[in-house]
Amino acid sequence: MKKMLAEKPVDVNEEGYLLEFAQWDKEIADAIAVEEKIDLKDGHWKAIEWIQNEFKKDSPLSIRGIKNSGTLNIKEFYELFPGGPLKKASKIAGIPKPKSCI
Protein backbone atom coordinates (compact mmCIF):
# COMPACT_ATOMS: atom_id res chain seq x y z
CA MET A 1 0.00 0.00 0.00
CA LYS A 2 0.97 3.63 -0.47
CA LYS A 3 1.84 5.81 2.45
CA MET A 4 2.96 9.43 2.72
CA LEU A 5 6.24 9.74 4.58
CA ALA A 6 8.11 13.04 4.68
CA GLU A 7 5.61 14.28 2.08
CA LYS A 8 6.65 11.54 -0.34
CA PRO A 9 4.50 8.57 -1.41
CA VAL A 10 6.23 5.27 -0.58
CA ASP A 11 5.21 1.61 -0.82
CA VAL A 12 4.95 -0.12 2.55
CA ASN A 13 3.55 -3.43 3.82
CA GLU A 14 0.80 -3.66 6.44
CA GLU A 15 3.36 -3.34 9.24
CA GLY A 16 4.90 -0.22 7.75
CA TYR A 17 8.12 -1.72 6.36
CA LEU A 18 9.27 -0.23 3.07
CA LEU A 19 8.81 -2.54 0.09
CA GLU A 20 11.36 -0.75 -2.10
CA PHE A 21 14.67 0.13 -0.52
CA ALA A 22 15.30 2.49 -3.46
CA GLN A 23 12.53 4.75 -2.10
CA TRP A 24 14.36 5.23 1.19
CA ASP A 25 16.11 8.43 2.15
CA LYS A 26 17.10 10.09 5.43
CA GLU A 27 13.94 12.17 5.64
CA ILE A 28 11.83 9.04 5.32
CA ALA A 29 13.95 7.43 8.04
CA ASP A 30 13.23 10.42 10.27
CA ALA A 31 9.50 10.16 9.57
CA ILE A 32 9.42 6.43 10.45
CA ALA A 33 11.51 7.09 13.56
CA VAL A 34 8.99 9.69 14.75
CA GLU A 35 6.23 7.06 14.44
CA GLU A 36 8.40 4.70 16.50
CA LYS A 37 9.01 7.47 19.04
CA ILE A 38 12.75 7.51 18.40
CA ASP A 39 14.80 10.68 17.97
CA LEU A 40 17.59 9.80 15.52
CA LYS A 41 21.06 10.79 16.68
CA ASP A 42 24.59 9.91 15.52
CA GLY A 43 24.51 6.49 17.19
CA HIS A 44 21.28 5.59 15.40
CA TRP A 45 22.67 6.59 12.02
CA LYS A 46 25.75 4.48 12.61
CA ALA A 47 23.50 1.49 13.35
CA ILE A 48 21.27 2.19 10.34
CA GLU A 49 24.26 2.43 8.04
CA TRP A 50 25.65 -0.87 9.32
CA ILE A 51 22.29 -2.61 8.91
CA GLN A 52 21.88 -1.31 5.38
CA ASN A 53 25.36 -2.53 4.44
CA GLU A 54 24.51 -6.00 5.77
CA PHE A 55 21.30 -5.92 3.76
CA LYS A 56 23.19 -5.01 0.60
CA LYS A 57 25.58 -7.90 1.27
CA ASP A 58 22.53 -10.17 1.62
CA SER A 59 23.66 -11.35 5.06
CA PRO A 60 20.81 -12.10 7.49
CA LEU A 61 20.54 -9.86 10.53
CA SER A 62 20.79 -11.27 14.03
CA ILE A 63 21.60 -10.07 17.51
CA ARG A 64 24.80 -12.13 17.36
CA GLY A 65 25.69 -10.24 14.18
CA ILE A 66 25.35 -6.97 16.07
CA LYS A 67 27.74 -8.28 18.72
CA ASN A 68 30.32 -9.19 16.09
CA SER A 69 29.78 -6.05 14.01
CA GLY A 70 32.68 -4.14 15.52
CA THR A 71 30.60 -0.94 15.24
CA LEU A 72 27.89 -1.56 17.80
CA ASN A 73 27.42 -3.59 20.90
CA ILE A 74 24.21 -5.27 21.99
CA LYS A 75 23.65 -3.04 25.01
CA GLU A 76 23.93 0.15 22.97
CA PHE A 77 21.70 -1.32 20.29
CA TYR A 78 18.93 -2.03 22.83
CA GLU A 79 19.31 1.47 24.25
CA LEU A 80 19.14 3.11 20.83
CA PHE A 81 16.03 1.22 19.70
CA PRO A 82 14.12 0.21 22.84
CA GLY A 83 11.44 -2.46 22.51
CA GLY A 84 12.55 -4.69 19.63
CA PRO A 85 15.76 -3.18 18.28
CA LEU A 86 16.36 -5.36 15.24
CA LYS A 87 12.86 -4.79 13.92
CA LYS A 88 12.65 -1.09 14.67
CA ALA A 89 16.11 -0.42 13.25
CA SER A 90 15.27 -2.39 10.09
CA LYS A 91 12.03 -0.48 9.64
CA ILE A 92 13.77 2.88 9.95
CA ALA A 93 16.60 1.68 7.68
CA GLY A 94 14.02 0.89 5.00
CA ILE A 95 14.77 -2.82 4.74
CA PRO A 96 12.43 -5.81 5.24
CA LYS A 97 11.54 -7.12 8.69
CA PRO A 98 14.28 -9.56 9.78
CA LYS A 99 13.26 -13.21 9.85
CA SER A 100 15.89 -14.31 12.33
CA CYS A 101 14.96 -16.06 15.61
CA ILE A 102 18.37 -15.28 17.10
Binding site: P60, S62, I63, R64, G65, K67, N73, I74, K75, Y78, I102
Partner: peptide, 18 residues
Protein backbone atom coordinates in the same frame (compact mmCIF):
# COMPACT_ATOMS: atom_id res chain seq x y z
CA UNK B 1 25.53 -23.41 10.45
CA UNK B 2 22.46 -21.50 11.64
CA UNK B 3 24.75 -19.00 13.38
CA UNK B 4 23.65 -20.17 16.83
CA UNK B 5 26.25 -19.15 19.41
CA UNK B 6 27.88 -21.62 21.83
CA UNK B 7 26.49 -21.64 25.39
CA UNK B 8 29.05 -19.23 26.88
CA UNK B 9 28.64 -16.66 24.12
CA UNK B 10 24.86 -17.07 24.23
CA UNK B 11 24.88 -16.23 27.95
CA UNK B 12 26.84 -13.05 27.19
CA UNK B 13 24.32 -12.11 24.50
CA UNK B 14 21.42 -12.70 26.90
CA UNK B 15 23.08 -10.58 29.57
CA UNK B 16 23.84 -7.74 27.14
CA UNK B 17 20.25 -7.92 25.89
CA UNK B 18 18.98 -7.30 29.42
Amino acid sequence: KLNMPPVGEFLEILKDSG
